[in-house]
Computed example of a mutant assay.
Amino acid sequence: MWDHETVDVLGVRVSRVDASTLRRFITAAVTERRKLTVTFANPDYVRKASKDAALRDLMNGFDLNLADGWGVVLASKIFGRPVPGRMANDDLTDDLFGLPADEGWGVYLFGNAPGIAEAAAANLREWFPGLDVVGTEHGHCADATGEIPPADAERLVAQINEAKPAILHVGLGTPLQQRFVADHRDRLDVPVIITCGAYLEHLAERRDYYPPWVLKLRVGFLYRLAREPRRLWRRYTIELCSYILTVLTHRLRHGRQPA
């Protein structure tokens, strides 16, 4: 339905689109009431998906898999089908909220700890005058098994549908957020559904989560590691090295992908 080129990064089909194409797709989805689901592929998710067929199929079931992180951008170059650039949530704030503010579309923020979505909504309304945040809900809804109980899922779907957003942001962490979208996409009366991980936490803090020098030097992972060393040290050391080694090994074994 959303025709575009992709690059295979360890089994995950990463979309080769830029911000202008994303805006065009979002506009078409909202105005034509066509479903568009968007998720993000970072090195951690790609590494896990390369070993987990269920996660891989889940991510590939989305209409768009955007390159979240320079590790995925680099891999696309190594495999011979480069993406236009990094397309993380933080890079797209003006597109994801400036566009609906200009067009009068409602957005719904679902995810992260209690109070985060509300704080993010307050900031977004200040940064984008006229933005209609039609609803917020925290993402602490999983039970001891790590899943959202059916009754809670029913309530959430009904609550979101009642608010009638044009765009829904879902920040539950991977793979829970992808499973929620996959399980309920046909019942959610929302044209555009976007997973966002911890993005709402960034928006609750400040608009430019990454300082300009961090983006210029492409060291966002080091910046996050310095902020949350206990939670992220393994991801950005051992697991990142494992990812890079896997990418290089795959390239040596399989060569470049057709242009």
Rank of each mutant, 00 (worst) to 15 (best):
K164F: 08
K216W: 15
A166Y: 05
L200W: 02
V192H: 01
L225M: 05
Q178L: 11
Q177M: 00
A204S: 02
L215Q: 11
V170I: 04
V192F: 02
L222N: 13
R206Q: 12
R227N: 07
D183T: 15
P191Y: 10
P212D: 15
V247M: 10
I167V: 11
A226I: 02
Y199M: 01
A163E: 09
L225T: 00
V247D: 12
R179W: 09
G197M: 03
A198K: 15
R206K: 14
E228V: 02
E162W: 13
G173F: 09
V214K: 02
R227Y: 07
H184E: 00
R185S: 12
R206A: 08
E205V: 02
L245D: 06
E201K: 01
F180Q: 04
I244W: 10
H169P: 10
P211I: 06
L225Q: 00
T174E: 06
P212T: 15
R231M: 00
R187F: 06
P229A: 04
T237N: 04
C196R: 03
V214C: 01
V219H: 05
L168I: 06
I160H: 05
V190F: 01
H254Y: 15
H184V: 00
W233H: 03
L172F: 07
T246W: 04
L245W: 03
E239V: 12
V170G: 02
A166E: 09
L240R: 08
W213E: 15
P175G: 04
K216S: 15
V190I: 07
H202D: 06
R251V: 14
L168H: 08
I244T: 14
G171H: 07
R187M: 04
V219G: 06
E228A: 01
S242Q: 13
G171K: 02
V219M: 09
D208N: 11
T174A: 07
R234P: 09
Y209H: 13
C241V: 15
R253M: 04
T249F: 12
L176F: 08
C241S: 15
Q177L: 01
V219Y: 08
D189C: 10
A198I: 14
Q177K: 03
R218E: 12
H169E: 05
A166M: 05
P229I: 01
Y210S: 14
G197T: 06
P191L: 09
T249P: 10
A166S: 07
A204K: 00
R207Q: 09
